[in-house]
Simulated scan of single mutants.
Amino acid sequence: MDVEKLKEGIIFHKKNSPKTYKKDIDLGVPIFVLHKNIINGIDRILNKKYEMTNIELDVLSSLVLGGGDECILSPTQLYDRLVFSSGGMTKVLKKLELKEFITRVENSEDKRSKLVKLTSKGREICDKALKEVVTYECQYFECLEKGEKENLKSILFKVLENN
């Protein structure tokens, strides 16, 4: 990525669109570009190596992190956690079931619905993919010293807490 061109573009737009740039909103552009680059890189890893999408990994991860010892959640719990529509979640769950990463099990509390359970194959692929994704994300910040990483993290959380 040509960072100098990005900086020049921000300066150009700031100069030529003074009404738009009344405040220092140019911080959002590098954050957006960084986010886009990281997500695109993760998508490439997941598609190429694991034949899965980011949302599929999110579902598997949610089962691991929120599904207790047996890694079981209801579809409603999953789409609430992932801010996803029920129709969209149904499509994702069908794909994961075809790949044998999840299975549907009886819901003892509600016979009308089935719960989603992570399979051992799903757990294995989730662990491998997550490890690779986290490694990839960390590479983006290797150029920062330890103190810079702490400052950046502190600043980002401060912004998040304020909104």
Rank of each mutant, 00 (worst) to 15 (best):
Lys19Tyr: 04
Ile39Cys: 03
Ser62Pro: 03
Val59Trp: 09
Asp127Pro: 03
Arg104Pro: 00
Leu27Lys: 01
Lys91His: 11
Phe157Asn: 14
Lys22Thr: 13
Phe84Asn: 04
Leu93Cys: 06
Cys126Asp: 06
Gly41Ala: 05
Glu124Leu: 15
Ile11His: 02
Ile11Ala: 01
Lys128Glu: 13
Asn163Tyr: 12
Lys95Leu: 12
Val159Pro: 07
Lys153Tyr: 12
Asp110Ala: 15
Tyr21Gln: 00
Leu82Ile: 03
Ser74Ala: 10
Leu118Pro: 01
Tyr21Val: 08
Asp110Cys: 12
Lys19Met: 07
Gly68Met: 04
Glu106Ser: 14
Lys23Ser: 13
Lys91Val: 11
Val33Asp: 01
Lys19Val: 05
Arg112Tyr: 14
Glu142Tyr: 15
Lys153Gly: 09
Lys158Arg: 09
Lys121Asn: 12
Asn40Met: 04
Lys5Asp: 02
Gln77Phe: 09
Gly9Ile: 02
Leu82Cys: 12
Leu130Gln: 10
Phe84Cys: 11
Gly68Gln: 06
Arg123Thr: 01
Phe141Asn: 05
Glu106Met: 06
Leu96Gly: 03
Ile42Pro: 13
Ser17Phe: 05
Asn37Thr: 06
Pro75Trp: 07
Glu109Trp: 14
Tyr136Cys: 01
Val116Asn: 09
Asn16Thr: 13
Glu51Trp: 11
Tyr136Ser: 00
Val105Thr: 09
Asp127Cys: 06
Ser154Ile: 01
Lys23His: 15
Leu96Thr: 06
Gly147Lys: 15
Gly28Val: 08
Ile42Trp: 12
Ser74Val: 08
Ile25Gly: 11
Asp80Ser: 14
Ala129Arg: 08
Thr90Glu: 10
Asp127Met: 13
Ser120Gly: 04
Ile72Arg: 00
Leu93Met: 15
Glu8Cys: 00
Leu130Ala: 07
Glu137Asp: 02
Val3Asp: 01
Thr53Pro: 02
Gln77Cys: 02
Asp43Asn: 15
Asn107Leu: 05
Ile25Gln: 01
Asn37Phe: 12
Arg112Trp: 15
Gly68Cys: 02
Leu34Tyr: 04
Asn162Ser: 15
Glu124Trp: 07
Lys146Trp: 14
Val92Lys: 07
Thr119Arg: 00
Lys121Met: 03
Glu124Ala: 12
Ile42Glu: 13
Val92Ile: 14
Cys138Met: 11
Asn54Val: 14
Gly67Leu: 08
Leu78Arg: 02
Leu118Tyr: 07
Leu130Trp: 04
Glu137Asn: 04
Ile38His: 01
Ile39Gln: 05
Lys111Gln: 15
Leu82Tyr: 11
Thr103Leu: 06
Cys138Ile: 08
Asp110Pro: 13
Thr20Pro: 00
Lys22Leu: 05
Leu46Met: 07
Ser85Tyr: 08
Leu78Pro: 12
Leu78Cys: 08
Asp26Ile: 01
Cys71Met: 03
Arg44Thr: 12
Asp26Ser: 06
Lys36His: 07
Leu130Met: 11
Phe141Val: 12
Val3Met: 05
Val3Thr: 02
Thr90Ala: 15
Val159Cys: 08
Arg104Glu: 00
Leu57Met: 14
Gly9Ser: 12
Gly147Ser: 14
Leu144Pro: 13
Ser62Leu: 05
Lys131Pro: 00
Leu57Tyr: 11
Lys153Asn: 10
Met52Phe: 10
Lys114Asn: 14
Glu132His: 07
Lys114Thr: 10
Pro75Asp: 05
Phe141His: 04
Asn163Glu: 09
Gly87Leu: 13
Gly67Thr: 04
Ile72Pro: 03
Glu100His: 10
Leu93Trp: 09
Thr90Ile: 11
Lys5Glu: 06
Arg104Gly: 00
